[in-house]
Amino acid sequence: MRATPPVEDLGEGLWSVPVPIPGNPLGYTLVYVLESPRGPVLVDAGWPHEDSWGALTAGLAAIGTGVADVHGVVLTHFHPDHSGLAERVRAASGAWIAMHGADADLVRRLRAHTPEEHRDLQAERMAEAGASPDEVARLRAAPPRMAPPAPPDRELADGDLLDLPRRKLRTVWTPGHSPGHICLHLEDADVLFTGDHVLPRITPHLGLYTLDTDEDPLSAYLDSLTGLDAVPATRALPAHEHRFTGPAARAAEIAAHHEDKLDRLAALLDARPATLWDLSARLPWARPWAEMGTLARRMAAAETAAHLRTLERRGRARRRDAPGGTPGWTAPRAPARP
């Protein structure tokens, strides 16, 4: 578990408030607080837990303000370690909540089903990927994940300025980690809030969670990494780990990492179709496949699916659908099976 850093004054009316994520190896989310004449605006809000709420309220008090004073919360994306406390902040202060329209649409779709329905759908997708019946059964028996966040009051698009008096905080749409992930360029302070898009040491999860879609999250992510070249900011303030300089250079390193992973995956393909689960098991991960739990394997398979989708788009992989069976992938010139 990462040690939680202190609340920090970053200068120019900007603060960093670490909010813990209990039981998660990431350790904490860095919530950023921007001072404004109408009250502070938060960039992200933190995980929905009493310990997290206590850290957020104590951090705001340490910088001379409080939850009731918050003017707005802008979310880099909808994941619970970023959005989880936003609704509670809104209830305490009347603050607006903003996120990109693509994530707002996704939140509305997620809220149309119960957490139990989502868990069962995930189990069906694991079976489609080639997971064993035992693993599918373990996921069905697991507690359902938490409900998605409340829909935002305001939806953002690329290039939009936030409601932040006397400051210029501009939306930079960076899809990939989520469909509506955004970075935020504080143009009057040479700062780019990168959310999970660009982190100093690790890379964000990129998942394709259903094969029955035309989405290509990895290609979208690689394009949005390249797009950071056009953002004139040298100081990066990520949601995890620590601050760093040169976000465009770090983005290029992450892109190279994914290109290497695409090459590794392509090298595993041959004439015989392999399932998504089998290919995932043969790739290198931070933790060996044999030591992963069911949920970790599901996320790894979703990331493999995202890389396979990009290989398909580039003509480097071919999907073979068996009627009523499990899909498989081969090298692009592999002969069709009789």
Rank of each mutant, 00 (worst) to 15 (best):
G13E: 04
G13Q: 03
L14M: 11
L14P: 01
W15E: 10
S16G: 04
V17N: 00
V17P: 00
V17Q: 06
V17Y: 05
V17R: 00
V17W: 07
P18W: 08
P18D: 11
V19D: 03
V19Q: 04
V19F: 05
I21D: 01
G23I: 01
N24I: 02
N24S: 14
P25Y: 06
P25S: 14
L26Q: 10
G27S: 10
G27H: 09
Y28D: 00
T29A: 13
T29E: 06
L30M: 08
L30V: 10
V31I: 02
V31A: 01
Y32T: 12
Y32C: 14
L34I: 11
S36T: 15
R38F: 01
P40N: 09
P40S: 03
L42A: 02
V43P: 05
V43Y: 05
V43R: 01
D44W: 00
D44T: 13
A45T: 09
A45M: 10
A45E: 11
G46E: 06
W47Q: 11
W47N: 11
W47E: 15
P48V: 05
H49F: 03
E50N: 10
G54C: 02
A55L: 04
A55H: 05
L56E: 02
G59K: 00
L60E: 01
A61P: 03
A61Y: 03
A61V: 07
A62M: 03
A62S: 15
I63S: 14
I63G: 14
G64C: 06
T65V: 04
T65L: 09
G66Q: 02
V67F: 02
V67D: 00
A68P: 00
V70F: 08
H71W: 06
G72C: 01
G72S: 08
G72T: 04
G72D: 08
V73N: 10
V73H: 13
V74R: 06
V74M: 12
T76E: 10
H77L: 08
H77S: 13
H77Q: 11
H77E: 13
H77M: 10
F78W: 14
F78A: 15
H79S: 14
P80E: 13
P80K: 02
P80D: 12
D81S: 15
D81F: 11
G84N: 08
G84D: 09
A86F: 05
A86I: 05
A86C: 13
A86P: 11
A86K: 02
A91D: 15
A92G: 08
S93C: 12
S93E: 03
G94V: 06
I97S: 14
M99Q: 10
H100V: 11
A102K: 09
A102F: 06
